[in-house]
């Protein structure tokens, strides 16, 4: 499979289409990477933390999840790739579909889902192995063995996470020798290498310096033409800068579960929110 590539004006590499048409059609039958959540609720044991979340996450756009600490943003994000399954004693209710396909039922294998829905974590977490092996981990898991195919994939994904120029001569170097910002871009490349439709990012820049943060934001902007991105962030300016849609969640008390206050175009949410609670949160009056 060939990955079409194009250089943007400033010299950075941008992937125009991560998947070829065949792959897209066979996996998704048309629209790719859009989630639809209906009345989603999550409980950790008996502690109901989220309830009644209904929203649509559009394909090929950046959706920001914002809200005060503890309101369940990470929890909701983990519903989208079923990582909550791994925590044990977590109950997810409601219905979530990816491109129309139910992802919560028995029919969906979480392993398959996670190849379509990648995740980037808050702290950079490269594997203790070489840069190349980090990126090739997902494809190898999918059974890709051909050296040339892997090399092509590694190069393409490192280009699209804007790390290629810095590491192209040291792919065998251990990933821990990279800086924090480079490690996070490596993690983005690693997540891209399985050719996902969606990438979930849980505060991907919160552990990074301003310049690395900028690079991550640029990467996100370049990626959204080919991948759907759902990002959790505590940084309002960041949400305003990079996202197309914003969803605001709130947990008003520890007894009651969190809910979705409102969701809409980022521009409108930040200039003209419908709910006064959204306004106070965005303007920094609580949270």
């Amino acid at each position: 499979m060939v990955i079409p590539m194009q250089l943007s004006a400033d010299g950075g590499a941008v992937i125009t289409a991560v998947r070829d048409a065949e792959y897209t059609a066979e996996v998704t039958g048309g629209a790719i990477g859009s989630f639809s959540l209906t009345d989603v609720s999550v409980a950790y044991g008996r502690d109901r933390v989220i309830e009644g979340v209904t929203m649509d996450v559009p394909a090929h756009a950046v959706t920001a999840l914002i809200g005060p600490s503890g309101c369940g943003k990470s929890t909701l994000l983990r519903c989208l790739n079923r990582m909550n399954d791994e925590l044990g004693n977590v109950h997810v209710g409601g219905r979530i579909t990816l491109d129309g396909q139910d992802i919560m039922g028995k029919a969906m294998d979480p392993v398959e889902l996670r190849m379509r829905v990648g995740q980037v974590f808050q702290r950079p977490n490269p594997f203790p192995m070489s840069i190349f092996d980090n990126v090739a981990y997902g494809p190898r898991t999918q059974g890709i063995r051909s050296r040339t195919e892997l090399s092509d994939l590694v190069e393409a994904t490192l280009r699209s996470s804007a790390l290629w120029d810095e590491v192209k001569n040291s792919l065998k170097k251990h990933a821990f020798e990279l800086s924090g910002g480079q490690q996070q871009r490596l993690c983005i490349a690693r997540a891209l290498a399985t050719r996902p439709e969606v990438i979930l990012m849980d505060e991907p820049a919160s552990a990074l310096d301003p310049i690395s943060t900028q690079q991550i934001e640029d990467t996100i902007a370049a990626l959204k033409s080919s991948v759907t991105i759902v990002i959790v962030t505590h940084n309002m300016q960041q949400a305003a800068r990079i996202s197309d849609k914003t969803a605001f969640m709130l947990r008003e008390s520890l007894e009651a579960p969190a809910f979705l206050v409102e969701m809409g175009d980022t521009k409108r949410m930040f200039t003209n929110p419908e709910d006064t609670r959204t306004e106070s949160y965005i303007t920094g009056r609580f949270g």
């Binding site: 889902l113 190849m115 995740q119 977490n125 490269p126 594997f127 997902g138 898991t141 999918q142």
Partner: peptide, 22 residues
């Protein structure tokens, strides 16, 4: 670190693969 297991699982690796590869 738990992070490493999560990263591997999130890439679609099974638990077994996560254990022996990471």
């Amino acid at each position: 670190p738990q992070d490493l297991r999560q990263a591997s699982l999130a890439l679609g690796a099974t638990r077994l693969r996560t254990i022996y590869r990471v």
